[in-house]
Structures are given as C-alpha cells and as structure tokens.
C-alpha cells in the first residue's frame, strides 16, 4: 500500500518533464535513501524476556532479541537507527541490584544510537543517574531539563545530528514535568523547561539553522492522556510544532498502538507519533524514503496523502 503511494508520488512529481532519454543503469541507488528508525520506550530494565502465565507477556520481549533484530536490520540497511524514549530504569530486580549499570551496558551492546530521560531515571536520585552513566556508549538527549545547577551539568546533550548518506537527522528530547511525579530530593535543582517552547526552539534550530532533513523528537511526555485536557502530551505537542517529523513517545504504558498516530501539525503537515508499548515487548519501525533532488524541485515534496 505504502509502496504504491510512494511510486505514484514519484510519477506525479516528475510529470511534465518529458524529454531526454537515459539508460536505466545511470540511476544510481543513492537517488533514493531509506532511513529506518527503530525504537523502544519504557524498557524498565526488562533485560530478559518476560515470564509468567499471562500470554500477552510470557516469552515476549528481551533485550537480546531486540539486539539481534537490530543487527539484522542494520545489515539490511546500514542507515538504521535505534532510539529509546526513556524510563530505561526501574521495574525488575536487575535495577534494584545493579542500579542503572546493567541496562545501560545491555542497551549499548544492543546498538542504541540515542535515548532520552524518563522520570524513573531519577529513582536513585541524581547520583543514581551520574554513577551508571559511563556505561552508556550512546548519547542520552534531553532538551528541556536544565541540569546546570546539579552534578549532571554537561552530561546530556540537548540535541544530536546524525549524517547518513548526506541525509541529516536531527534528534532532540523532551522530559516530563518532574514536580509531583518524582520526589524533590531525587531531582534536586533540575529545572524543568516548558516542553512546547523547547520543542519549537529545537525544531527551528535543527531544521532551519542546521538544515536537517528529518527532525525526530524523543519524548517522555506521554502520547496522550484521557480526561486530562490540561496536560501536555505528544498528540497535543504537534499542534504547536511545524518542523518535527516524528515523535517517539513513552511514559504511558496503557497505550498500545497497533500503528502510529498520524496528526497534522500547526502547518497542516503530517507528523508521525509512535509508542512501542513498553518493556521491550514491541519495537517500532519507521522507514522514511528520501529522494535526491535539487533545491528548486520542491514540487516533488508530496507528503503522503493516503487516499
């Protein structure tokens, strides 16, 4: 289905230019590039597959399985990323016994490219974040927690730009309001900055200044909340953004998405919002197909109108 839409869009984009015949072989593969984004959230230290009598869980998940899958995907397409949307910590005795050390080691081994900070990362206080942090070989991105007055100052980049085959992918991260959710002594002098304001700042910076082709938000705000109209969440965030292409969410485990939510942003463009349930039980996969074109050929830019 998507494939068909893709081809139709290309034909539509090139229509009208009908001269010049060149052999097919001239078309190098790099006229099209696929960026594959794999993602998880709320791993909660579920390092091993789940056990128990509940069929929804039993035998499912497991970081070793995720790692193997990611390896295969990276083999198929080297332009594959693995992201996480926070709450890596807390949930199994692996956390109680080994704090954040093991999950960060395992995630590093599994090839994570970036993660963000969830509220449960604070469960052992700021020290409990600082101590295991060297075990993460991937950046943990957070744009709206200001740690400058804490022991975590300078530990978390506000964004990261990846360049793959000339395609720039800009990633920023949004954390949830800590007050009332995390004990004050656990977050100390961490300042929570308004996620909407920060998102707009970050997307403008990444898209306009840094010329990113794809802007990804790793969010731990929660995809949506029923009956809580005032609470900011991913589906509400898109109403204020205009350059974020993809929001990878987390926090609210009760949300099981069979497929991502597609919502229009402030400019009327489609934004994909996805959450991969929780605990590594689901892995989200989003392929973006890019076409090489001239800056003047903006007309090719047909967003997928699924009809």
């Amino acid at each position: 289905m998507n494939r068909r839409i893709f081809l139709r869009n290309i034909s539509a984009g090139t229509l009208g230019i009908s001269f010049g015949i060149f052999p097919k072989g001239l078309l190098a593969n790099n006229d099209f590039v696929t960026i594959t984004i794999l993602h998880t959230n709320d791993l909660h230290c579920h390092i091993e597959p789940f056990t128990g009598s509940d069929e929804k869980y039993n035998g499912k998940g497991g970081m070793a399985r995720i790692s193997e899958f990611v390896k295969e995907q990276k083999k198929k397409n080297p332009n594959t990323f693995l992201f996480d949307a926070g709450d890596m910590f807390q949930g199994t005795p692996y956390f109680n016994y080994f704090k954040g050390e093991l999950i960060l080691k395992v995630m590093s081994q599994a090839g994570y490219d970036a993660g963000t900070i969830g509220n449960h990362e604070f469960d052992n206080g700021l020290e409990g974040i600082l101590e295991p942090l060297p075990n993460a070989t991937f950046p943990i991105i957070c744009s709206n927690y200001d740690f400058s007055d804490t022991i975590l100052a300078g530990k978390f980049p506000r964004f990261k730009i990846f360049d793959r085959d000339g395609i720039k992918i800009g990633v920023y991260g949004l954390g949830i309001e800590l007050e009332g959710l995390v004990g004050k002594q656990n977050y100390g002098n961490t300042k929570f900055l308004d996620p909407v304001k920060v998102a707009v700042e970050m997307e403008q910076f990444l898209k306009q200044e840094q010329k990113c082709d794809l802007v990804v938000c790793l969010s731990h705000l929660g995809v949506m909340y029923e009956g809580e109209d005032d609470k900011i969440c991913d589906t509400k965030l898109v109403e204020y953004t205009s350059m974020t292409d993809l929001i990878l969410g987390g926090h609210n485990h009760s949300i099981y998405l069979e497929e991502p939510i597609v919502k229009r942003n402030k400019m009327g463009n489609e934004v994909i919002i996805n959450q991969a349930w929780w605990g590594g039980l689901v892995i989200g996969k989003i392929d973006f197909v890019f076409e090489r074109s001239s800056k003047k050929k903006k007309a090719i830019f047909t967003n997928n109108q699924d009809t």
């Binding site: 996805n274 392929d287 074109s293």
Partner: peptide, 28 residues
C-alpha cells in the same frame, strides 16, 4: 524522467526530500 530532472537541475546543490514512509509495530 527522474534522471532527466536530476541532470537538468544538477547545477543546483542537491538535497534529499522525504517522499514516503512505512511504519510497523512489531511484537518482540
């Protein structure tokens, strides 16, 4: 047609445009 258009406008700096996407949530 595509090659034509790429060549015609080849003098401009090339960049990539997002043209489509596919999504899938896989059970681990």
């Amino acid at each position: 047609l595509l090659i034509t258009c790429v060549l015609l406008l080849g003098s401009c700096k090339t960049h990539y445009s997002k043209v489509s996407y596919e999504t899938e949530n896989l059970t681990v």
